[in-house]
Design a protein around this nucleic acid. Structure first.
Ligand SMILES: [Mn+2]
Ligand SMILES: [Mn+2]
Ligand SMILES: [Mn+2]
Ligand SMILES: [Mn+2]
Lengths: 222, 222
DNA sequence: ATAAAATGTTAGATGCCTCTAATATTTTAA
DNA sequence: TTAAAATATTAGAGGCATCTAACATTTTAT
């Protein structure tokens, strides 16, 4: 295992490569909030350790070894988040920051027990899939709320952010994973969406918020 | 809060000062398994930060600020250990190493919840007192097994080590905190002790082991 | 009072991780 | 095809935490 810093680089490279394919040194610098030369030298170190392959102007790519390490850290992060919610009773909006620390705990026993206590869970509290202990991850195809036509009903399965401010916002709106929602109105002007919620309340979401919410279409029978 | 390294220095200084009064740079070096000059420069840094007062050849002393920080870390360590045993179902012999990592987690929510779930516990799984959130700690006067006369009965309240090998040894002997034991025989030659245990078995302990076990005299009525 | 033992310091270096300032290369767009 | 934009590198430095090698001071025991 590498240092804490190294682990955070690997994790960020993985996340960015999922989102955008290539990862540029400059992107990584922005994500990690460090300056370019810092990233440059770390990427060299990671390349020496065969954790990444790097070609300037072409981007950084994790090697198999790097990918495996990334998935191990993500597994620990997500297991920790779910544990904090299910076993310790914390809110889904407050677990990410703690998991950022717990993901670096080096103890197979600790994570074995968490996995057992949660009965080998498949999803974290934000609907993100938890890689299994071999690093296998089930990526689902996802539909965003903004891609749903008026009148359709769907179930919220995940959100793409675990930043506290975003989750606080959803809490305030009364939205949770598992909730069924119907698209009442889509505004052409600003992309905002009005939902009909099980609570009978109508909920207005801006485009910015709605696009971060993933849903699964509710099966409709004739 | 300081760095992880700094926290470990503070904690070790506290532990050594409990055991021996003064703490010499050389002692600390041995305990932390680093060389003298490393300790020398760190102690200077800690002194700059007003965490310790240091006089060469006289020893290192924690300031009030340093003591407060030490107790906060010890509190987190011991809460974590008990949590790992009581909530997560790990054995008392395997929790110390994990707690060494968890004690550095920076999250008041995390430790608040642990404290609540455990109902503000007073002792860790090895019988060590848990400082309260203000750093107040209840130090008990302790009697070692080796100071008990033949024929007396006492209850095991704590052990002075949480090293795995020592606890594995006690597990193998079938001894736990809370067990009542009677001194059957004390050997003059090597200081070893034979116990009568609730399990009806007789247990032989070397001096080295017995001196690390604390007991409370069982009240005897006439 | 002196020598021995215990305790501590300085100098100089290294690895990790970061920075600013200056410069370089590659890609893309006019 | 050249200029602009995007991307990246080098040089030189600093803080933290560690080391080895050499040297220094204080305490203690004789
Ligand atoms: Mn998270
Ligand atoms: Mn999550
Ligand atoms: Mn411990
Ligand atoms: Mn303990």
């Amino acid at each position: 295992m590498g240092s804490l810093t190294e682990e955070n680089y690997i994790k960020s490279i993985y996340a960015l490569s999922e989102a955008t394919g290539e990862v540029y040194v400059s992107e990584l610098a922005k994500k990690l909030d460090v300056k370019l030369p810092s990233v440059n030298s770390m990427v060299k170190r990671l390349a020496t350790k065969k954790l990444v392959a790097y070609a300037p102007y072409k981007g950084i790519k994790l090697t198999e070894k790097g990918k495996k390490e990334a998935l191990a850290i993500i597994r620990k992060h997500r297991l920790a988040e779910l544990f904090l919610v299910k076993v310790m009773g914390l809110g889904w909006e407050e677990v990410h920051d703690i998991a950022e620390q717990l993901e670096h705990v080096n103890s197979s026993r600790f994570y074995e027990r968490i996995d057992e206590l949660l009965n080998s869970p498949k999803f974290d509290p934000h609907g993100e899939p938890i890689p299994d202990s071999n690093g296998k991850i089930h990526t689902q195809k996802r539909t965003s709320l903004i891609d749903l036509a008026e009148g359709l009903t769907a179930t919220i399965t995940a959100v793409t952010e675990d930043e506290k401010s975003f989750l606080d916002h959803l809490n305030a709106k009364g939205l949770q994973i598992g909730d069924a929602v119907t698209i009442k109105k889509r505004e052409l002007f600003d992309g905002s969406i009005t939902l009909q919620h099980k609570s009978k309340k109508e909920i207005l979401l801006t485009h910015q918020v709605a696009e971060r919410i993933w849903v699964e279409m509710t099966v409709t029978r004739s």
